[in-house]
Amino acid sequence: MKKLPRPDERRPLLLARRNLKMARSPHAYVRGNTVQFYQWLHSQRGHALPHGPAVWICGDCHIGNLGPLAGADGEVTIQIRDLDQTVIGNPAHDLVRLGLSLATAGRGSRLSGVVIARMLEEMVRGYEQSFSGKLHDPHHKPDAVRLVMREATARSWKELAKERIVDTDPIIPRSKHFWPLSREERKALRDLFAQPEVKQLATRLKSREDDAPVTLIDAAYWVKGCSSLGLLRYAVLLAVGTGKQREFCLMDVKQAIQAAAPRHAHARMPRDNSQRVREGALQLSPALGERLVAARFMDNGVFVRELLPQDLKLEIDTMETAEAMRVAHYLARIVGNAHARQMDEDTRRAWLTELGQRHGKTLDAPSWLWQSVVELVGSHEQGYLEHCRRYALTTR
């Protein structure tokens, strides 16, 4: 096996890997480039969006950041699964970001511009329906969602171990995904998981005893994600209980950094970024929020959660026309549910009225949404090609 990098050699290698991942496709570029999206939001066009009520938003609401999540009680639902960028902000930002992601995925599936326009119409319909008072997860799932839910509910610890750490033995084998730790990192991780609140994450599931002993078995630097490459990220393997009752669990420790998403001018949010992520998760995705702890690690804010076998990313690489409509409608309902549960009835009604204004003559979706997505698709396509020229070609 190729020699793995030392801790002081990580950063340039991680940034190079991130750049290559973003060069794989325009959709991958959109997923990994939150900063360009918010640069656009600060432009004149971005300022023209409607001002929705101040609620917690995802802040990076693309397709890959939604998917199945298991709650501590074992129930699996589709919710927002990545809250790194969450802030109290304008819900219109989540709508535009989701619309951009859907449009880019549609173009990658060779769907026509007419179909993409209809996708945005369905997205708005799904979002508005979530404000009807029925905030439950919709039952009529698109095929792509139904398949990932079936996979999620059937998965066990063995599947998670094979996917994440190759084997079910109590060790994290060093590989291209798991790199060696420094002595300082090993000590800091042991100190972190000695904290009662962090330790209790491992006993939070209903199948485990609250007073079961928790032992740190192994840990490694985790090369994972795209936008998080270059930040602190660790996989930590714990044992819960003893003897025949012993279970293993895999913890994800991730650095929390300042959000690129703009916050509402008068919003009061936790100043610590890890606390901000936890609070946003509790509001938007309770299944995730109840399994997440904010902590300090080596002078940085981090959030810690146990990875469950049912936690999966929603991957939609290709779509047929009918399926694209259902996906757009369904995912917008999930986002709408997360927004609507934070609003009272009067606020919901006022926001729906605002959404219904400025519809085009031929498009049953707000003109501000369509124009924003069209402009963003163009700027991101240009940015993607330039990104490939600058990074992908230079590594040949």
Results as ranks from 00 to 15, higher is better:
residue 4 L to W: 00
residue 5 P to Q: 01
residue 11 R to M: 12
residue 11 R to C: 09
residue 13 L to H: 09
residue 13 L to R: 12
residue 17 R to H: 11
residue 19 N to A: 10
residue 24 R to F: 04
residue 25 S to H: 01
residue 26 P to I: 11
residue 35 V to S: 13
residue 36 Q to Y: 03
residue 48 A to V: 10
residue 55 V to P: 07
residue 58 C to V: 00
residue 60 D to G: 01
residue 60 D to T: 00
residue 61 C to N: 07
residue 64 G to S: 08
residue 68 P to Q: 03
residue 68 P to L: 02
residue 69 L to W: 01
residue 70 A to F: 02
residue 74 G to P: 09
residue 77 T to S: 14
residue 78 I to Y: 05
residue 78 I to C: 13
residue 79 Q to W: 08
residue 80 I to M: 15
residue 80 I to A: 12
residue 82 D to C: 00
residue 83 L to C: 10
residue 89 G to D: 04
residue 90 N to I: 08
residue 94 D to W: 00
residue 95 L to G: 00
residue 97 R to Q: 01
residue 99 G to D: 06
residue 102 L to G: 05
residue 105 A to D: 08
residue 109 S to Q: 04
residue 109 S to P: 03
residue 110 R to F: 08
residue 113 G to S: 13
residue 115 V to C: 05
residue 117 A to G: 15
residue 121 E to Y: 07
residue 124 V to W: 04
residue 125 R to L: 14
residue 127 Y to Q: 09
residue 131 F to M: 07
residue 133 G to Y: 01
residue 134 K to F: 12
residue 136 H to V: 10
residue 137 D to L: 09
residue 139 H to W: 09
residue 143 D to L: 13
residue 144 A to H: 06
residue 144 A to C: 14
residue 154 A to N: 05
residue 160 L to P: 14
residue 171 I to Q: 11
residue 173 P to C: 07
residue 174 R to G: 08
residue 176 K to S: 14
residue 177 H to F: 07
residue 178 F to C: 09
residue 180 P to H: 06
residue 192 L to S: 02
residue 194 A to L: 11
residue 199 K to S: 14
residue 202 A to D: 09
residue 203 T to H: 06
residue 204 R to C: 11
residue 205 L to S: 11
residue 207 S to Q: 13
residue 210 D to Y: 13
residue 220 A to D: 06
residue 221 Y to A: 12
residue 225 G to D: 00
residue 228 S to L: 02
residue 228 S to Y: 00
residue 236 V to Y: 10
residue 236 V to P: 07
residue 239 A to M: 15
residue 244 K to V: 10
residue 248 F to L: 15
residue 249 C to A: 12
residue 255 Q to D: 06
residue 256 A to V: 07
residue 257 I to F: 02
residue 266 H to P: 08
residue 269 M to C: 04
residue 272 D to S: 11
residue 275 Q to M: 10
residue 276 R to A: 07
residue 277 V to E: 13
residue 279 E to W: 09
residue 281 A to T: 01
residue 289 G to Y: 05
residue 292 L to T: 08
residue 293 V to Q: 15
residue 297 F to P: 04
residue 308 L to S: 15
residue 313 K to C: 12
residue 314 L to E: 06
residue 325 M to Q: 13
residue 325 M to H: 12
residue 327 V to W: 01
residue 329 H to C: 09
residue 329 H to Y: 15
residue 332 A to Y: 00
residue 358 R to I: 07
residue 358 R to Q: 15
residue 360 G to Q: 14
residue 362 T to K: 14
residue 365 A to F: 01
residue 370 W to Q: 11
residue 374 V to W: 08
residue 379 S to H: 10
residue 379 S to K: 07
residue 379 S to W: 01
residue 380 H to R: 08
residue 383 G to W: 01
residue 385 L to M: 11
residue 386 E to F: 05
residue 386 E to D: 05
residue 387 H to Q: 03
residue 392 A to D: 13
